[in-house]
């Protein structure tokens, strides 16, 4: 039971990290109709910038500056890249972000090389905060949770309370109307893209040292974030939140479950031959777990393209 709690905790930490990525992606997609393939690349840039800054002036300034730099970079790319291809249609936009993801990976290799960076957890937070049943809970993971939750509350505050938040909300559902009302929708786009990528950058700052900072880190997360926003429902932050936590927990806990289909069948009294361990029946849940998100995503797209909480189709 205590171990279950430990898994749940780890899953939630990872899920919140996913949500920091998927919230920005959801905003960008629902406003601009662009699935930003390079979103996880901004996560990677956040981690690398944070590493670079922290080697000079420490982790805490990096926590502030790295996301800001990433956000500005995102805004510039929106202004001079994405907007240029916009006239060629959605396919061109998708291809642009796709090429961008590839290029960012190469640029990261160009500057920092291919080896993982020694970007580590700040020593102030590098201890076990408490221990339950032999499993210690690291202070840094609690810190990650706090950062993501406070960031998200802040974001919710902006969207729900401020004028720009109102425009964003309106632009989510009725972009044409907002445009005709005289709001500069393209500037809102730039802002949203900047904030979205900045948020991904922040996730990179706190995720890069908890996991590993290396050029493949964007790829490892890229499609999972897509799964989150599609399953959660395009344009729905609540959906993205629920889906992030769900996926985070599934991905971390499945490791612990050593039950296979054959075991399940055996409980009702049917035994299968244990001759071939490669047989699908003998795969444990932990081995099957990696395909679950994608299976879920495909089924969702086919049966309910608006996702769990979405209000409109993609």
């Amino acid at each position: 039971m205590d171990t279950a709690f430990f898994f749940l905790f780890n899953g939630i930490v990872y899920g919140l990290l996913l949500f920091m990525l998927s919230s920005g992606l959801t905003l960008i997609f629902s406003m601009m109709g662009v699935l930003n393939f390079a979103h996880a690349s901004f996560y990677m840039l956040g981690a690398y910038f944070a590493y670079q800054i922290s080697t000079h002036i420490g982790f805490w300034p990096a926590l502030i500056f790295a996301p800001l730099i990433v956000g500005c970079l995102g805004a510039v790319i929106e202004r001079y890249g994405l907007r240029t291809v916009h006239r060629h249609g959605h396919v061109a936009e998708l291809l642009f972000t796709f090429g961008l993801a590839l290029l960012i990976e190469e640029i990261v290799i160009l500057i920092w090389g291919r080896n993982p960076m020694p970007y580590s957890v700040p020593s102030e937070l590098d201890f076990a905060l408490f221990e339950i049943a032999g499993n210690s809970y690291s202070a840094y993971k609690i810190f990650m949770m706090l950062v993501s939750i406070s960031m998200l509350l802040f974001l919710y505050g902006i969207i729900a309370r401020t004028r720009i938040g109102m425009i964003i909300q309106a632009a989510l559902t009725h972009p044409e109307t907002v445009d005709t009302l005289g709001h500069n929708v393209s500037r809102v786009f730039m802002l949203v893209f900047g904030v979205g990528t900045g948020l991904a950058g922040l996730a990179g700052v706190i995720g890069g040292n908890a996991f590993v900072t290396e050029p493949g880190m964007a790829r490892a997360l890229g499609t999972i974030v897509f799964v989150v926003i599609i399953v959660g429902g395009l344009g729905s932050l609540t959906g993205a939140f629920v889906a992030s936590l769900l996926l985070g927990v599934i991905q971390t806990t499945a490791v612990a479950v050593d039950v296979s289909l054959a075991d399940l069948v055996a409980t009702v009294g049917i035994t299968t031959s244990a001759a071939d361990a490669n047989d699908l029946m003998h795969k444990t849940l932990s081995q099957v777990a990696p395909i679950l998100p994608y299976l879920f995503m495909v089924l969702m797209l086919i049966s309910r393209p608006r996702g769990l909480f979405g209000t409109r189709d993609a």
């Binding site: 499609t223 099957v288 994608y294 995503m297 797209l301 993609a314």
Partner: peptide, 23 residues
Amino acid sequence: TIFAMITLGVAELVAASSNIIQG
């Protein structure tokens, strides 16, 4: 876009299955 996403999902699904269907 939906078609693009489905193909991506199917591709990831098949790629992830390669770990499971080792035969």
